[in-house]
Amino acid sequence: MNKKRLASVATSLVISSSALGAELSLLSNLEIEGDARVRGISTSGITSNSDKAKETYDSRIRINLNTTTDSGVKIHSRVVLDNDTWGKTSDKNVEWDEASVLVPLKDFFVYAGRVNDTYGTPFYGSHNDKIDLAFIGYTGIENTLLYGFDYKAVEGAYNSSNGQLGSSTGDGDYDAYGLGGQITIDKLLLGGRYVSLQDNRSDDGGKTFRDTKGFFVDAFASGEIVGLELQAQVQQNGGDKYSGGKKVDLEALGMYLNVAKQFDRLKIGAIAISTEDGYVAGGDLEASYLTSPTNGAIATLGRVGGYGDTVLLSGQVKYDINPELLIEATIASHSIKKATLNSLNKDLEITEYNLGLQYKIAKDVTYKIQYAAASFDQGNLDDIQNAMHSINIKF
């Protein structure tokens, strides 16, 4: 990705008074990078929102602004300009998507701002939503990171006009507090954490609040071992959650395993996901084209586990025909208990086939076309067909 350094643009200014006036000093440079995408999507069959057919074009531009000051402080922000559906004037958005700072403090660092909801890893528990995070890390031990954090997904005000937190516009709040650590051994990262969850959101405009408390503990691994690329995570949830207007026990369990091997221009991989009373999502979960909006066009089936306890197995093959052309194929099997898809409420088996091509038109321009099909073991459900093609540009 090309980066444009704008040495003439200051992100920090120091103004000092003198007998001759004010003096401006440049403390850092600004880096601008981003990507643009235009794509067309065609979907037919039974999907998570029961759409029989959908054909649309959309476009998106993301602009990243990054800088490092002379004292080592890193500042990042990202602006997203979405035109989600061409021809639908209300379906567009300009959003200040991310904004964060990282401040080094000898053996510590502080990281704070609006970031992706990844809880520190891109696997189980990653919803790709935005949260506000305050994170402090300790790096005084070689190859080790110890950390604590507080994130807030929803912040509300008191439901009154007493002036303490402003006018009544909030609907409760959602907080999480965590402790964790990770260690790097050779090319493998191993880690774990404990997170306490507090959900005080309101579903009736602030008259009553959920007041539920939960937690999760997990362990994860990422990197390379015995020549294999590895990503793995196990997460156990407990405590309370809010469902159907009341508190119920939370006992969700999620497991994720992704292994791959590179053979010259050929890469072979396998992914296994299991969920109980929960779901999995995230940009790095490419087990299924129909459940990953990042890997595919849209999450046609929705988040893994969001429609019933799920076991998802997939095998993947990628082959670089030449430096410009990549072909990839995936076969996936979904086994779902009491599937809620299309109000089915029965056990459901789905077999999914994916085929894709990527062609590098120029150094920073890629054309991608992908086709996915899913067949159900229930005769009253229409099989899914999903086709997407897109132009992607990095700058």
Rank of each mutant, 00 (worst) to 15 (best):
E251D: 15
A260L: 08
L250P: 06
I41F: 02
T43H: 07
I273P: 01
Y359M: 08
L266Y: 11
A176C: 05
S44H: 14
D364M: 01
L381R: 06
A22W: 12
K246D: 09
A270R: 06
I268G: 07
G379M: 09
G166S: 04
S42G: 12
L290S: 08
A22C: 10
A332P: 02
I271E: 05
T43L: 12
Y57V: 10
S126T: 15
L344V: 00
F216A: 00
N66Q: 11
L197V: 13
L26N: 15
E276Q: 14
K246Q: 13
L27C: 07
Q198S: 09
S161A: 09
G254D: 07
G191L: 15
D309R: 03
L326A: 04
K213V: 10
D35I: 00
V365C: 05
H76I: 02
G306C: 01
N345G: 10
L30T: 06
T118I: 10
D284G: 08
S16T: 14
V110G: 09
S292D: 08
Y151C: 03
Y158W: 03
G245K: 04
F209H: 09
S48F: 05
E352I: 01
V311S: 15
S48G: 11
L228P: 10
I185H: 15
K213N: 14
Y138S: 13
D82L: 03
S8W: 09
K360S: 05
T330V: 12
L253K: 14
D320T: 09
G40E: 10
E33N: 04
L312N: 07
T310R: 09
I327K: 02
L179C: 05
D91H: 14
N143V: 00
T184D: 06
K207S: 14
I331T: 13
Q262L: 09
W86S: 14
A219E: 03
R78V: 00
L165I: 02
N162V: 00
G170Q: 01
I350S: 02
I75V: 12
L301W: 12
Y147Q: 03
V217M: 14
D309N: 08
T11G: 15
K360E: 00
T184K: 12
K247A: 06
G223F: 01
F220R: 09
K88T: 07
Q236C: 06
K4F: 13
F376A: 05
K130E: 09
S44N: 15
G40K: 10
Q236F: 03
A362T: 05
F220C: 13
S390F: 02
G254S: 15
I298Q: 15
Y119R: 13
L105I: 11
K318C: 06
Y57L: 13
Y138C: 07
D117Q: 03
K318Y: 14
L301K: 14
K337Y: 12
D309W: 03
T69G: 07
L230A: 07
R62Y: 08
K247C: 05
G181C: 03
K130P: 04
E33Y: 00
L285W: 02
K368I: 11
S59F: 01
F376T: 01
S25M: 11
S161P: 09
D364N: 10
Y194A: 06
Y177T: 08
A372C: 02
V304W: 04
H334F: 09
